[in-house]
Design a protein around this nucleic acid. Structure first.
Lengths: 197, 197
DNA sequence: TATGCTTGCTAACGCTCGTTAGCAAGAAAA
DNA sequence: TTTTCTTGCTAACGAGCGTTAGCAAGCATA
């Protein structure tokens, strides 16, 4: 009956506000008191909902990792499709995850180093696995004669690089929709790679 | 006569070590005591050479900005050259600055937000000017019919994005030299943009 | 009514932070 | 020799940090 009832749990609310602060100021430069103020409560009260500051970061980083893997799996589910198509879908899926929550994406991309061990090592292993999956797809594409490039690793790296800069400039209220951005990026990045008919 | 004499001034030495710490841990998470220890002295002693922690960050960020502008100016000095050539030179110049000191580059790209006003605003203005220069070059290329792309701003953004991820994975002892990387990046990124003969 | 969960408060803990004051030794310049 | 610059130390400052203990109000469930 309360119209001001939280749409999400308090914990999820904390995560959301913390994520946007982490994006704006960085994890280390964001204080729990600042976060509490932003939520309209006292610093100590946060600990009724969370265990530690790092726990928030952990949830954001690993949560997003899961989303990236899910998007990639969906894009490459149809193994009978041409590699170029799978790659295009993977790019578009990656962009969709990035734009769905660009604050969380920025934290995922930039703030993971503030994870302490062993989470940090685990995270890097996940990131490496993801990059390797992209690399393997490019490799297959080259082997199948669909792509031409001297070095699959190099291509995969610059591909992800172009994509991962997106949260730095993407604005949800910009003139391009996430799907348009995704499509255009895929177009432009694959343009130089596809074997011309 | 002293073989252990500092190759650079103490101040420059502090800048260098601080830059590498800023890269590894981030500006906010790097303490002056940590920096001092790394240099083999006490925290208070740093202040015989520098005015503040932020002063170091300021010098790194604005110093690198200058290098980027210089490289761009050199690449586009010959205004009679085809735009595609100028763009290729600008890309290679950008990459050369990035690889010459990848620690400083990372700080330049990631840690500028810890500058306080008005330096922060000044810095962003410089960055915008640089991006605008790249954008203008792409625009000219499209107008001259040398490049085909639907949106110069989009192209410039993704171009710089691919390049700026470089410090994240570049290793000076890797198998590719900076010049090879520069050349290959220019090739790959322009591949999809150049109008085919 | 009783129980327990959610939510939040106040007050404080031990610690680290960036920075400063004051002093001193050695080298270089006068 | 005197002066000045460079370099570094110790000790301490005030402030902010993440986190905890203990308590309490309100609500949902039993």
């Amino acid at each position: 009956m309360n119209t001001a009832a939280p749409l999400r749990s308090r914990k999820a609310q904390i995560d959301r506000v913390a994520t946007s602060l982490f994006r704006a100021r960085g994890f280390a430069a964001t204080s729990m008191r600042e976060l509490a103020t932003e939520l309209g409560l006292e610093a100590g009260s946060l600990y009724s909902h969370i265990k530690s500051k790092e726990e928030i970061l952990h949830r954001v980083c690993f949560g997003l990792a899961e989303e990236f893997f899910a998007a990639f799996a969906a894009a490459t589910a149809d193994t009978t499709a041409p590699i170029a198509t799978q790659l295009r879908l993977a790019i578009e899926g990656h962009v969709r995850v990035l734009t769905r929550d660009s604050a969380a994406s920025t934290v995922f991309l930039q703030e993971w180093r503030h994870l302490s061990e062993p989470a940090r090592t685990d995270f890097l292993a996940l990131r490496d696995r993801y990059e390797a999956a992209f690399r393997a797809l490019v490799q297959q594409g080259i082997a199948a004669g669909e792509l031409h490039a001297p070095d699959a690793a190099f291509v995969a790296l610059t591909l992800l690089a172009s994509l991962n800069w997106l949260p730095a400039w993407y604005r949800p209220d910009g003139k391009l929709t996430p799907d348009e951005i995704a499509h255009r990026l895929a177009e432009q990045l694959l343009g130089g790679l596809l074997v011309k008919d």
